[in-house]
Design a binder for these strands. Structure first.
Length: 983
DNA sequence: CCTATCTCTTA
DNA sequence: GTAAGAGATAGGT
């Protein structure tokens, strides 16, 4: 920086508060995120950068920085503990805007400066001095009197909201003293806002008069006796110390050891597209237009950015004390419906309150039976910008479900006007009547034509500017997808709840409604029956269906109003927007594709298994001396431990003899022939019943493929689960079991590709606990279990006995699982004392792991939750249980969750990026399955070689750029005709 | 008919 | 020692 340059220093924190109070409240239309201060801030920055010369500043900046307060605690608190003590917490709808404003600053490509222990004013003073000394001019964008002490020949201030230049003359005019006397003046007057004491009875006018008369504070205090007014004189003499302290408090530090040098504040030309992407995300339409014009950018071609409102990379929570950040930390499970970090006072919060307060009236719903009415509802939904949507079908299985009708719920009015409410309607499409009577039934009266209704609905569902709110929308996306309609632009209340409250209870609509709305919706079984009396939804009377379906939509919309503001308040927006919401559409397509299964292979296997099991059963009955149900653990226990008198190992918690594989193996090892046969019989019958016999039943009648269902909100850690059928527990460990996998095949001319992460959880552990030996071993590609064994037992890696490596491997897994001597002893079949010794030695070699475990436990205990490196939270409300067993269990789970969860986050990120990456590479490979650390694809045989490097690259780089791992991720991938050979 | 228990499969 | 889902049996409703 040199003479002639001009540095603009924006007092960001000061501006935020001023903009918040001066401007009318404004919220992002699509989700109610409060953005009033953000809007004011962006407008100010834009004005400064683009037209400063035309304002009373009169110059164009060459250098620019925005300065923020870091936290409310600074060095001034050590001088005077009560400094700023009477300052109340920022308004709750301003809180989430702090991080957005930092995002805004970055979108403008401006340096965003803050420093722990210092106020923005100190940093401004420091940079102003540095620039002054370099010969440059400085304009401080603020109207705060605390900064006026900086004003001088080279430094002035500018009040952007009033377009007013503040120089030496203006300071004298306003305060009656020149800028360099402002410190003394403030020392006398004090500041009630910042709780600076000053001298009681002395205001700005008197202070200016005194300073002018005596010259400075020290002279005044020394000659206080000369003051003629008795009251004033006594007060100054009595409070001289307070004045001196106050002077220290108001004097700005201009010698902070700042990290950014002046040259790094150089003002670069605007990055139009980057800024526009941000402004679009904020939905600031007129500023978007102005920026587009000025930067000659085609705004329509730029997608709205994903705003990381509190991304893990910047998650220290500036400006906030932890206790103020988002309501109570809520360590324990039971929260009142209005707890957990809402924003009282904001528009969003008003809506949330109203969403809870008004009673739900299921008789007020409308049944839409004609095109005109539906059109009117759809127009109203477009006008509102959001609505809740729910489909009603004939089956829980989305791939088999036929659409019967759909419901809508819309917000009406505004909370400001006190008229906010929700109206909801149901559109019956395929209800039938008269089933069971002799005429055979037919379509019910008063329903719209399916095509006409879907044409109208399509306009809404495919319009990205209208937010669709649903509960488990993946289901509705599958159903609508089968009618050729894509749902674009949505929020899912189930996923919102999952991101906010994983571990605190279920995320189904009934549970959410009970927790947040205190309302119990009509139960499905009350409209469609259950068990033998279960009827399809198409047979439900339309009036009943309307009450049920419209209520679901209304409840969903109310839940959204409660949950969405919490997302912002808790800083979980980026987890939701990057890890959850986009994955729903990806999983939908995977489920839709399904995987091909060879019936013949399974049928042949089933026959072989039946034969083998029958032969074993005969031998078992023979050895037992009587016929009994081998599959009954109770009968088996009676025979083994009662009649045959074998030594019983352990009991189950209900007091039965355990007949677990472990117990039976022990008996077999002791020389008894029967238990081994039982173990073998169990393996065969397990494979037969769970896999070879059950899987063909899942083959879809039309697609001839098997379509699993992935649950996104089932686990506490962030993993997916799979059901109907569960494809995440298809056997692989034994040769017999692996035969099941040969039945999972590619279509003719195609192959399956299996790509799996190598040791992902240990790599995550090496990263989060920062263990140098582990990281080095992974970087060098060394056998990690052998390395562990070598470190622990001093055995060379070369020619290591397999037993030694096995033990180290068990310990490595144990560590991930929150190790206990009891568990490790069980796993290895050794004494608990020996296992304890192993653990002790392990921690001695890898002390960082013990630190990680202790820190994680402490964090869980303190907050009630733990976090992955990507910001996902897992709650453990029972971590403080007085029951030591419960507590220990929760501690182990809490230790495991950041590891398992980060691995789950990584593969989620890979999945979200995968389809675009494959398409960009020009490869037609379809992602079919996810098995925690493995992805399975199907592609034309000729394309496999091209697909594999793309898949591997996406997976290996999935953590970037959010997290730069200290450890490389490795992926193995292979293609083959069936899953067994590909894996 | 529904739910709990036990066992077994996976990462 | 972590995280899941499913099948068979047994017992209560």
């Amino acid at each position: 920086m040199k003479q002639g340059d001009h540095l603009f220093l924006v007092d960001g924190s000061g501006y935020i508060f001023r903009a918040y109070h001066a401007l009318p409240p404004l919220t992002r239309k699509s989700d109610g995120l409060p953005v009033g201060a953000v809007a004011g801030f962006c407008n100010m920055l834009w004005k400064l950068i683009s037209e400063a010369r035309d304002t009373s500043v009169g110059v164009t900046p060459t250098h620019f920085a925005v300065i923020f307060d870091y936290s409310s605690k600074t060095f001034r608190n050590t001088l005077y503990p009560d400094y700023k003590a009477n300052r109340s917490a920022p308004p709750e709808d301003l809180v989430p805007q702090f991080s957005v404003i930092r995002e805004a600053t970055r979108a403008f490509d401006l340096p965003c400066i803050e420093m722990e222990g210092f106020e923005a004013d100190d940093l401004i003073a420091t940079y102003a001095r540095m620039a002054r000394e370099a010969g440059a001019d400085v304009t401080v964008i603020s109207s705060d009197k605390d900064l006026m002490q900086l004003v001088g020949p080279k430094v002035s201030m500018y009040d952007g909201m009033k377009d007013r230049h503040i120089g030496v003359a203006e300071v004298i005019e306003k305060w009656g003293v020149p800028p360099e006397k402002m410190i003394d003046l403030q020392a006398l007057t004090g500041d009630s806002v910042d709780n600076v004491p000053g001298i009681p009875g002395i205001g700005p006018k008197t202070a200016a008069q005194l300073i002018t008369e005596f010259g400075d504070l020290d002279t005044l205090l020394a000659r206080a006796e000369e003051i003629p007014q008795p009251k004033r004189r006594e007060s100054i003499i009595a409070n001289a110390d307070k004045a001196r302290l106050s002077r220290q408090l108001v004097r700005l530090s201009d010698d902070v050891a700042v990290t950014e040098d002046l040259d790094s504040l150089f003002l670069n030309p605007l990055d139009g597209p980057k800024l526009i992407a941000f402004l679009k995300a904020m939905e600031f339409t007129s500023l978007t237009r102005r920026v587009a014009e000025a930067t000659h950018t085609e705004a329509a071609e730029i997608a709205a950015a994903t705003i990381a409102i509190d991304s893990p990379e910047a998650a220290h929570g500036p400006d906030l004390d932890p206790g103020e950040a988002g309501g109570s930390p809520a360590a324990d499970g039971n929260r009142p419906p209005d707890g957990g970090g809402g924003n009282p006072g904001s528009v969003a919060q008003r809506r949330a309150e109203l969403a809870v307060a008004a009673k739900i009236d299921t008789t007020a719903y409308v049944t839409i039976r004609d095109a005109e009415t539906l059109r009117a509802w759809c127009d109203a939904a477009r006008e509102a910008g959001l609505f809740a949507f729910d489909t009603e079908t004939t089956s829980l299985d989305a791939m088999q479900a036929d659409l019967v009708g759909f419901s809508l719920a819309l917000p009406v009015g505004t909370p400001e006007a006190g008229t906010f409410s929700i109206r909801a309607a149901y559109v019956p499409l395929a209800h039938i009547t008269g089933i069971g009577d002799l005429l055979g039934g037919g379509p019910a009266e008063g329903q719209m034509k399916l095509d006409a209704a879907l044409a109208e609905l399509r306009m809404l569902l495919e319009d990205p500017s209208v937010l669709k709110v649903g509960q488990n929308l993946k289901y509705d996306m599958l159903v609508m997808g089968r009618h050729g309609i894509r749902i674009i632009g949505f929020d899912d209340t189930m996923l919102l709840s999952y991101v906010l409250d994983a571990g605190r209870g279920g995320h189904g609509m009934d549970a959410l409604s009970a927790t947040w709305l205190g309302h119990q919706p009509i139960a499905y079984k009350d409209v469609a029956g259950s068990g033998k009396g279960l009827i399809g939804f198409d047979q439900v009377e339309i009036d009943k269906a309307t009450a049920y379906a419209a209520e679901d939509a209304e409840v969903t919309l109310r839940l959204w109003h409660v949950l969405k503001p919490r997302l912002v308040a808790d800083g979980l927006t980026s987890v939701y927007e990057r890890l959850e919401r986009p994955l729903a559409a990806v999983l939908m397509r995977m489920e839709e594709r399904g995987i091909s299964i060879d019936r013949q292979i399974l049928s042949r296997l089933s026959g072989e298994l039946a034969q083998g099991a029958a032969a074993l059963e005969a031998e078992i009955h023979d050895l037992a001396g009587e016929s009994f149900n081998v599959g009954s653990p109770k009968q088996l226990g009676d025979i083994l431990f009662g009649r045959m008198g074998l030594p019983g190992g352990s009991k189950t918690k209900s007091g039965q003899w355990s007949t677990s594989a472990q117990v039976l193996e022990d008996l077999a090892a002791a020389g008894h022939p029967l238990p081994r046969k039982i173990v073998d019989w169990r393996q065969l019958t397990k494979l037969k019943s769970t896999y070879t016999d059950a899987l063909p039943g899942f083959i879809h009648p039309q697609t001839k493929r098997v379509h699993t269902s992935f649950a996104m909100a089932a686990t506490t850690t962030g993993r997916l689960s799979s059901s109907d059928p569960n494809i995440q527990n298809i056997p692989v460990r034994t040769a017999e079991g692996r035969k099941i996998r040969t039945a999972f095949i590619a279509e003719p001319g195609n192959v399956l590709i299996s790509a799996d992460y190598s040791q992902i959880e240990l790599r995550v552990l090496a990263h989060v606990a920062d263990i140098p030996q582990l990281s080095q071993a992974f970087a060098d590609g060394i056998d990690i279990h052998a390395m562990t064994a070598s470190e622990m037992f001093g055995v060379p890696v070369l020619d290591m006995p397999s037993e030694v490596r096995r033990r180290a491997k068990a310990i490595n897994f144990g560590i991930i699982y929150g190790i206990s001597a009891f568990g490790l002893a069980n796993q290895l079949g050794i004494e608990r004392s020996e296992a304890g010794e192993y653990i002790r030695r392990y921690f001695e070699r890898f002390p960082g792991i013990r630190d990680y475990m202790d820190e994680t436990k402490a964090q869980a205990r303190e907050n009630g939750y733990v976090e992955t490196i990507f910001g996902r939270r897992a709650h453990y409300p029972e971590i403080r249980s007085p029951n030591p067993q419960v507590r220990a269990f929760n501690e182990r789970a809490a230790i495991n969750a950041p590891i398992q969860g980060a691995a789950a986050d990584i593969i989620r990120r890979a999945m979200v990026r995968m389809e675009d990456a494959l398409e960009a590479a020009g490869v037609n490979a379809r992602m079919l399955l996810q098995v925690h650390d493995e992805l399975v694809f199907e592609t034309a045989e000729a394309e496999a070689a091209k697909a594999i490097p793309v898949i591997v690259s996406v997976m290996e780089h999935a953590a970037m750029p959010a997290v730069a791992m200290r450890v490389p991720l490795r992926v193995d991938a292979r293609s083959a005709r069936n899953w067994d050979e590909a894996h």
